[in-house]
Design a binder for these strands. Structure first.
Lengths: 109, 109
DNA sequence: GGTCGAATATACATTGTAGAAGAAATGGCG
DNA sequence: CGCCATTTCTTCTACAATGTATATTCGACC
């Protein structure tokens, strides 16, 4: 069984999906991601990550209905699978283990 | 000035270096890293990361004295530069921003 | 048809990871 | 004493996985 290690962006995207709940589709994910990280992420980067996570079965997606607005094409909504949830939890725990005992000057918080 | 984004392993290595203080050299870093992440990291992986972070001037290193024990070759000690400290802080803050408001405490789903 | 929101395809750069090889030190034995 | 096996640590090299950007396609309005 291959260990499911997660990259920085992958983790970020998964967290954003959790934060968005329903309503987590490509463009919204990109926007929220950019907002939270204060960095400009391109749509391509986000979609590529979504695809890869889906291929690893850490995410699953469903196609929604078109919305009656100009350009209102059907959106693809993403959510974590059980496995995805587990992988993210593991990553978060590992992270905390690493931060443990360190005084990282997090002033922004 | 290129943005200094940090990968998962890069951040982990930097945190371990902070945790080790003096005494942060290749092998010790590998061991502590493996212990904290509960994963087996090879020396090659660690040294490559150390090299790259040094090239980006996020780390600096000094060569120590040989120790009078069998195989006691001189060790190379690493520590964060100011820039490295800054980059790590930024990464940690971004992370917190992402975790903010999420219920991530995974009770083994 | 034009253009707008959304998604897919493609290409290349950076990071992650492993295994093998090279260097410097000591200890033991002929 | 000289020398080589052994130990510890570092460097080199190669390839897989992630990160990132740009261009292209798709479908829905007006």
């Amino acid at each position: 069984m291959g260990r499911n290690t997660l990259g920085t962006l992958e983790q970020a995207v998964m967290m954003v999906i959790l934060a968005l709940g329903d309503g987590a589709y490509g463009v919204a994910i990109r926007d929220e991601l950019s907002r939270r990280t204060r960095r400009d992420h391109t749509l391509g980067a986000v979609y590529t990550t979504l695809d890869r996570l889906t291929a690893k079965e850490l995410l699953e997606s469903t196609l929604g209905e078109p919305t009656p607005t100009r350009g209102g094409r059907a959106k693809r909504y993403f959510k974590l699978t059980g496995e995805g949830r587990q992988a993210l939890d593991h990553a978060v725990n590992a992270r905390h283990e690493l931060e443990y005992g360190l005084d990282l000057i997090g002033k922004g918080v």
